[in-house]
Design a protein around this nucleic acid. Structure first.
Length: 302
RNA sequence: GCUGGGGUGGCGGAGUGGUCAAUCGCAACAGACUGUAAAUCUGUCGCCCGAAAGGGCUGCCCAGGUUCGAAUCCUGGUCCCAGCA
């Protein structure tokens, strides 16, 4: 399992939505003999293609790995991605992880301590209807004090904390960071330009048939309360699906665009704190050549 | 033209004499984030001074009035909506 030299290289392409990450990654894959792995929490769902923008379907790993009513999380991503990376490296190819799900990328690059502690369904169902205050009372003061204010008020985080505490200590096996020789490329764009691209892309997806895609998902029995359906590009259509009209359609599109913009901003907040990402602005002349130069230098170094 | 309803902060929408710079939702802005992360959560959100506590100013269509005190009551104006003509 030892990887040396160019055999343990890992290229990561990340950044906010609508910056052309996937297409760029596919281009690099062709030029550098690599394989693309998606690091996207929504592209894993089968049947959700248009709304999640699965470019290069057929030549990207980790698209379509579960059905929309199945569970998926960073832990699943990590297991799948790590074994794929090893496999690709073994073939002497370059693994290229591309995606905007910041947590997934971070988990892959920096490791994540408690991944080995799985969900405890019975515990979760017991806690499901408790209020934030009740949940807070279940975690020790010392732990609570270590949490920041927003986490302390976040039921999901509290439940996870409780879940972790319930596990016995020996399950606390830390996830050891794989020591990949990693280069992280970040793609971004000026505010104005990013907005234009987002709007353009939403309209494209409407034309490509997002409505039909959702109708199909609903026909297959998937419901609006699934986490998968709580996805930008899908959730906005609930009202329209229940009573189709031009008005509802326009509302859905407007909402979708807004959510997409908000999402991009949230991503940027996250990325601002991530170290070791080499950023490139896509509305700058020659950015692609610069990136390729950097990648080439890294790729050929030992 | 008559009758009824209504005009509140960027928007939607509470409030019907004091505890109201005005619940709440949305938007906006700032931020958090280690098994739902395209998710979830936090803070700010009239203007000015202040790190904060706090203080000052303007304010619920407009103009007057009643009252110790009005977004809330009265009068007039104006605009919108519904019903009747």
């Amino acid at each position: 399992m030892e990887h040396i030299g160019s055999h343990n290289k890992l290229l990561v392409v990340t950044g906010p939505t609508a910056t052309g990450k996937t297409n760029f990654a596919l281009e690099i894959a062709r030029e550098f003999q690599g394989e693309v792995i998606s690091a996207d929490s929504r592209q894993v769902y089968r049947g959700m293609d248009i709304g999640t923008g699965k470019d290069g379907k057929g030549s990207v790993h980790l698209y379509d790995v579960v059905n929309p009513d199945e569970e998926f999380s960073v832990a699943h991503f990590l297991r799948l991605a790590v074994s794929l990376i090893y496999e690709i490296q073994r073939k002497n190819s370059l693994p290229i992880v591309v995606g905007g799900t910041g947590l997934y990328i971070k988990a892959l690059v920096e490791g994540i301590d408690t991944v080995n502690i799985p969900r405890n369904e019975s515990l979760r169902s017991r806690l499901a209807n408790l209020s934030v205050q009740e949940l807070q009372q279940m975690v020790p003061k010392s732990v609570l004090e270590m949490m920041n204010n927003s986490d302390r008020n976040n039921p999901r985080r509290l439940i996870r904390k409780i879940e972790i505490m319930q596990e016995n200590q020996n399950r606390h096996i830390k996830y050891h960071r794989r020591s990949f020789d990693t280069l992280q490329i970040g793609l971004t764009a000026d505010g104005e330009y990013l907005l234009e691209r987002i709007i353009q892309r939403v309209m494209d997806r409407v034309h490509k048939g997002i409505i039909e895609e959702i109708q199909q998902l609903l026909a297959m029995g998937y419901t609006w309360d699934l986490p998968a359906m709580n996805t930008i590009g899908y959730k906005e259509w609930k009202c329209y699906m229940e009573s189709p009209s031009d008005e509802h359609k326009n509302e859905a599109i407007a909402l979708w665009i807004r959510h997409e913009i908000q999402y991009a901003k949230r991503q940027l907040v996250w990325f601002k704190k991530q170290q070791n990402i080499r950023w490139f602005c896509i509305n700058q002349e020659g950015y692609k050549e610069d990136m390729k130069r950097i990648i080439y230098m890294w790729y050929t170094s030992s």
